[in-house]
Design a protein around this nucleic acid. Structure first.
Lengths: 205, 205, 205, 205
DNA sequence: TATGAATGAGACTTCATTCAT
DNA sequence: CATGAATGAAGTCTCATTCAT
């Protein structure tokens, strides 16, 4: 919720500021990020900053909301999934998107990572809302259990957690290596394991 | 690499300082940690601190190296495993150790977490050393492939990564909940999935 | 001395601004008062403010002069007193007026208090004007000395000062407690002391 | 409660700082006073200030406590009052002391005045404790009522209030005029009125 | 070797005022 | 005549580090 003053600014200037925010918050945690740095990079006066944003938090919120907006814009036409897709197919699709997202906006990925790192109360509150997609995947798993694709003994919550913790690591790897093809194969292999297990048939008893 | 001055200190005083470091760095990131707090808690003068350590980084390095030493000390006699154990058995054994480690030295776990968050070059170098145990597990997997327990198609490195990224999440959960029994069941379920897969037999083709 | 621009404004808008000033200066000292607050409350632009007033001082001056005007307006028909009234009767009457004034315009009272606190040269000049009423009461006392009601030895100026310093404290009490009846009894008791003294007859020598 | 660091300073430096505080707080309210000003006047660095005092409040508390110490030092041999003294005698004695105090330490008087002016929560809390001497005088009045010197109908609390509000005004006058003899006569006259009343005997009914 | 006083850069934030449109 | 963006000085406070003793 920046001020009107800010939204009345010329697009180009607003972008200048936005970019400065992205740069700063992609390199530093919220609590470590420096407004000084931002105003220097954005080439605005200290006073101006506070005419645009109530405070650092406000500025950060703005940044996040812009990121979310852009992300939605990019992901909006992703949904159309096939009737017969399993949860794993959707997972791979989601992963693809995420990877492309990192390719296009690597700094956004960094901002997200930094956010995960921050333990300030303010950030912790922000992150609370983030768990929705976990629920979504759990429900897909339940659906596939009904369909007879996934074994009934599997705990959907635990399987979801597995998928996500693997996801997180994989994205991080990708961010550092940028090996797109390798990453896809990598993930596919992982999913094969999660699907069929790693042991030989004789050991499945 | 603290100074000789530091190593010439009486054991008890050195411990005082070490403990103060543990306390501070378990609660704060490297950049947020305050030397003020450390010298107050350690009951030494500001000047002394800089006679012992070149700077904050030096102090942190010292802390980490001590932690690693202690950890090695504790984990060294873990190996003694049964002839017939699979990699999964060893994994569970290792996990047990790790959990006991958290129970005994929760602050070390916190320091480790904070460290994972930190992306400074300095920290990344340090973390490289951690990869040795990855290799160890990969070799166990290869052994089990030879033994016919694990399917040959499985990439040992990828399976290792899976095990470790799951490990990380699980330990975090344990740190926050301290539900030992729940955690073990949780992990066992995960390993079942990794062993036998999550899908029904018909879908294993 | 606001600008002509200001006086050409519509009555309603001028009132808006005046009210905003009252609100701000009743809650804060001159130096603590914030133009930000005023323009927000008055719903005018920053630029407009400076088109109406030369600066903060100018704005404050304006506020005070308006207050004085209103006060004079209200107090002008107070005089009409009874032939036989003593200075004390008139004092009580004045006090009544003052109390009613506080009841009607408590914020003005607050502004006045804040002003008393301020020792800037600018304010001290303004307060000089207040001394007229002191003279008036001194003259009433002299009259009552002529009438034989007040002892000739009494210094009219000193008695006036007593009455006024007591007045000030009493009004403050009233502002905070709003106990009308209690206040009147309180004041009456005080006047009894000033009239007849506090000591027993034997000690009047 | 300044830090040890501060108390370990050389007397002369401590005085430098103390004097700077006196100067600043005698000219400005607590909330208006500027640490910047103080460190400039005291010729110390910003960092040093905060090594001596926890914050502005701490600094102010220190100032006040020093003032109180000095005041006690000066007033300590005042007590010895005569058996037959009335409350008025004690009052005059106290007033004398207060006046001499203002003569010696006019800035301290100013600091006190500024304090009365400040409405910040911090200051309000501080002032709460100040009412002890009011109680003391009320008790003297009661004693004199027992002795038959003061009329029983008089409310001791109200009489005390009168004495104090007069006191306050008188001291302020003295601060601005420094007319010692005039002030004493002035006060004496006031007390005569409070003792014997201002009206003629015929009007005492 | 130990001490702790000194430092100044930098953190966030507020504010009165100016000025181009 | 109105607007509101721009400004920069000043506010309080924290911190890692240096250096004289």
């Amino acid at each position: 919720m920046p001020t009107n003053t800010f939204y009345n600014l010329e697009e180009s200037k607003r972008k200048q500021i936005f970019d400065a925010c992205v740069d700063e918050f992609s390199l530093h945690t919220f609590s470590e990020a420096s407004i000084n740095q931002i105003i220097k990079a954005a080439n605005i006066s200290r006073g101006s900053f506070y005419q645009y944003f109530a405070d650092k938090e406000d500025c950060y919120m703005y940044l996040l909301s812009e990121m979310v907006k852009e992300k939605m814009e990019m992901f909006k036409d992703v949904v159309g999934s096939n009737e017969n897709d399993t949860v794993f197919d959707e997972y791979e699709a989601m992963f693809d998107k995420a990877i492309r997202w990192i390719e296009v906006k690597p700094k956004y990925y960094q901002i997200g990572s930094k956010m995960d790192m921050d333990n300030s109360e303010f950030i912790r509150k922000l992150l609370k809302g983030n768990l929705a997609s976990l629920d979504y995947f759990a429900s897909l798993i339940r659906r596939d259990q009904q369909r007879g694709i996934i074994r009934k003994e599997i705990d959907p919550v635990i399987l979801t957690e597995m998928l996500f913790s693997i996801n997180q690591k994989a994205l991080m790897n990708f961010f550092y290596n940028r090996d797109f093809e390798g990453m896809k194969k990598h993930l596919h292999h992982i999913l094969e394991i999660i699907r069929k297990g790693s042991t030989t048939e004789e050991n499945h008893v």
